[in-house]
Design a protein around this nucleic acid. Structure first.
Length: 206
DNA sequence: TGCCAGGCCCTCTTTAGGGCCTT
């Protein structure tokens, strides 16, 4: 098992043709940032051509058009490049189970395994911010008053916003536990802790 | 032709059902 490291990780986001790679859906854009000690030190963004037209719903939802994708490199080429970018890193995404399914599916197509572990900002936010109106990415950004200028539902912007939310949550945990550095193992444990036991766990850490 | 997801989590639960979140 890879040891998650709070000092360096990749925050990523996919835009896709739909919800399920098992039903034939493909990635159409990937955005990612590399975080080191709380700072974005590297970015990755690429459209990718899934080899077929996308629906009007996805065009409207993402702002990514069939014309844009017609000029993009094929998925295999982009994902090979991204595999190099993320090699050996641990990963964070908002609703990670969704992005993990697409990452697994796209990397499987090009026979590129990865070794990092996934963490989920949605699961953590549900525990830390139980009074938020909801736990959609955009709502949490507003709830925490995080500055945001750009287009949600584009991969790089969403990954940047997820990274800011992630660091905000780490700061909040650090304050509650009086720890300067929050171990990733604690974040994993928090993400699996029943909501009504979260405060007790944080108090025990302080 | 029409339909198709999946993991997490709560509750009117666990031999289940439904809402939330992602595109």
């Amino acid at each position: 098992m890879t040891q998650l490291c709070a000092d360096s990780l990749i925050v990523l986001d996919f835009e896709t043709t739909g919800l399920s790679p098992d039903m034939g859906d493909r990635a159409i854009e990937i955005g990612a940032v590399r975080l080191e000690k709380g700072e974005v030190v590297e970015r990755f963004q690429a459209l990718m051509n899934p080899g077929r037209r996308i629906s009007a719903f996805i065009e409207n939802y993402t702002g990514i058009t069939n014309q844009m994708l017609s000029k993009a490199a094929p998925c295999d080429e982009v994902m090979d490049e991204f595999a190099h970018f993320m090699a050996g890193s641990n990963l964070v995404a908002h609703n990670a189970s969704f992005d993990k399914r697409f990452l697994d599916a796209e990397l499987r197509r090009i026979s590129r395994p990865y070794t990092g572990s996934f963490a989920c900002s949605l699961l953590l936010a549900r525990r830390l911010y139980q009074h938020a109106p909801n736990h959609k990415l955009g709502s949490l950004i507003s709830y925490k008053n995080i500055p945001a200028q750009g287009d949600f539902h584009r991969a790089l912007f969403d990954s940047e916003m997820t990274a800011k939310l992630w660091m905000t949550m780490l700061d909040d945990i650090a304050v509650q536990t009086a720890q300067k550095d929050v171990p990733f193992t604690l974040i994993q444990k928090l993400s699996k802790t029943p909501k009504n036991a979260v405060n007790k766990l944080l108090s025990a850490m302080s």
